[in-house]
Design a protein around this nucleic acid. Sequence first.
RNA 1: GCUCCCAUCGUCUAGUGGUCCAGGACGUCGCCCUCUCACGGCGAAAACAGGGGUUCGAGUCCCCUUGGGAGUACCA
Length: 476
Amino acid sequence: MSIRTRFAPSPTGYLHVGGARTALFSWLYARKHGGRFILRIEDTDIERSSIDSVNAILEGMTWLGLEYDEGPIYQTERFNRYHEVLQQLLDSGNAYRCYCTKEELEQMRARQKARKEKPRYDGRCRSGAGPREGVEPVIRFRNPLEGAVVVDDMVRGRIVFANSELDDLIIARSDGTPTYNLTVVVDDLDMGVTHVIRGDDHINNTPRQINILRALGAEPPRYAHVPMILGDDGKRLSKRHGAVSVMQYREGGYLPQALLNYLVRLGWSHGDRELFTVDEMIELFDIRDVNRAASTFNSEKLLWLNHQYIMNSPPEQVAHHLSYHMGRLGIDPADGPPLTEVVKAQRERTRTLVEMARNSAFFYREFEEYDAKAARKNLKPEAVEPLGDMLENFRTLPDWSGEAIHRIVRETAELRGLKLGKVAQPLRVAVCGGAVSPPIDVTLELLGRERTIRRMERAIAWIAGQNAVATQSDSG
RNA sequence: GCUCCCAUCGUCUAGUGGUCCAGGACGUCGCCCUCUCACGGCGAAAACAGGGGUUCGAGUCCCCUUGGGAGUACCA
């Protein structure tokens, strides 16, 4: 039998990293076994679902490259089917109408809690309650009273639930709409899902779903409950923990590959390996190797991984993603050196694309002003002469190459009896505005002769200006 | 409260009864390289939650305690 997995988010917010990892695991499992991966949108809670959320989820999946083979399937389009199953359950006696009011149920729960019991429906309508005026009934599933449900979970092993712990859950609201536990069961059944891979917050729902499945005369799929991802405070990851939306990582300058690699290693490992291409993940991943314990999201390690991918991915690929961030800064890459060259020059010193874009802006447009600290330290009167020397040489340099530029910088230092840093640093600040850039020869080569000369002149003038101000205030 | 799940360095993890005075990675701290920032190289500190068993032998199996998490909805 060919394997079919699914990712079934409810569209009540963006795609967050926890959901993305669950989706990744499902996707990998299907890919590894040559099966199919289905995307299903669980939007039966009309109050809380939104089209914006659907789009946000789709956008996140696309950016990560988790393409689905079927779907998206919307549960709201399957109401006829759910009603059919509901009727079937009613007819077979596996479900019944319940006329208890919300108030009654709340009181029941309050009393149970006061007695330190587990709050649950006591089954008062189970043996055939008659209609009550002004009460639209809900439909409840008639859960077996005795016996146990055994789940052989692919990551947890065997879990046993006593039916006596379960109550008769609501499978249709009083407005007739089906609830989650019914729709998952029907959908997984209809869609031929063979492996349900989901967060372990669903473990407690599993025995109920299995009971419904059995009442329908179906065999349950295999289950794999993967652990949750916790925030820095040890609590379940949520919107309170800041950047948890997948798309926020795009904005933050992360490569989708890096996020995927980080996510797959959270709860799964293959010996001592840290870096996996997507193809390697598909080859090596096994749901049985997934950890049982919850893990904490560590932004520092993600940053390191992102840097690894920036350094080791093909420059063209990095450049492609970088152009998005250049665009966000209002920069047109046509106004300067090729982006792939910038990537090669910057990749070792920037851990995110946002950083790379920001630190490379000077290649494409003038910077507003010098970094105060860098200027104070390097653009001093004693820098004027070496800068002037180099400027003259640069004007007449026959070939504007890194080697030639490097030779001039080195010779200037030797001629003036200065350490290389004393010459290179002022030059760096002059052309890029700050104290940090790629090696000076690489920087100048990419920047081009025109811009280099203009900025050196500007720096020399600026130093003179500073000097004049200082002299003035001295005499005043 | 009740039910279920979980427990190796700060974090992610390796480890499936002996080869573990516990290995790797991130981070941290030294040193080296160096025109800045980095990259890179070398090195260091850092963990089997506690207690009982089982066994010749336990991080590895069992039980209890403790600590965390989830569920307990006419949410998914």
